[in-house]
Amino acid sequence: MTSVLYDIPGPKARRRERIGSVIGGLFVLGLLALGAWQLQQNGIFEAERWSVFFDPPKNQEASDVWNFILVEGLGATLRAAAIAAPLAVLLGLILAVGRITPQRWVSWPSILVIELFRGLPVVLMMLFGVLALQLSFLQAVVFGLVVYNMAIFAEIFRAGIVSLPKGQSEAAYAVGLTRTQTLLSILLPQAVRRMLPSLISQLVVLLKDSSLGFIIGYAELLRSVQNLRDFFGIRYVVPLFVVGAAIYIIINLTLSRLAVYIERRGSKKAAGGVARAEEAVGGQVRGIDDASTGRSGGSV
């Protein structure tokens, strides 16, 4: 993509690039070495500090530590996300449908709800759940995640429906489908498929945001890292933190990769159906790529 900025390099430019890469690489390595030296100076690499994971002090078992991080901490994080995600998707779908309805008494409240909750910090809504609605910590975290993310999901669904070519709904009306039928059997299935990558990246955001429960007192992953730090002492904060952060990175990277994978696969498959339909109604084909994959087939 970015190769447009420069020519395909010749022998001289390639040499320059190699030299540049080496210098840049040395610079980055230098930074890393500086960081490692800094860690070394502060004794982070001492085996004793990391012993918290295999031979913890204070007569604790390693399995207890891992149990506390993975089962209680990560378990609580995943539980909140797993309850909130389907609720947010469902409510988001309802809001999106509400927003595009022509009846104003339906669409205006939907717009109000979407705009309101999009503009508020999630942690504030969690606090509202705890203090004003008297919810338990888990319920409050789920409440905060759901009201914020349903607004975002609604916008994603709407964007998906709006991005569909007009011929889709026109064709549906032409064959006599009602508005509801058009929405349910023609527009939404295509919109959801198109927006699957965005939906998954929003799920990553939802999972990340569950860590805001830390601030209002929900015992999730970060809180269990903090509790272990308080129990074993500040000496062990770095190893504990590294493990906590690594867990988040592994889960989220996996989800993000899944989104990219689906996007690649989906752009091949879904485009086929849409491009063909567009050709059929004589509309504009979205691009040469779509037209060519349209012929190679795919599920319609």
């Binding site: 990553v204 990340k208 904060v237």
Partner: peptide, 15 residues
């Protein structure tokens, strides 16, 4: 991008 902001705060303030 794959780390929660809360974790970053935790890092810069406690770690």
């Amino acid at each position: 991008r794959n780390v929660p902001l809360t974790i970053l705060f935790f890092f810069f303030i406690f770690v």
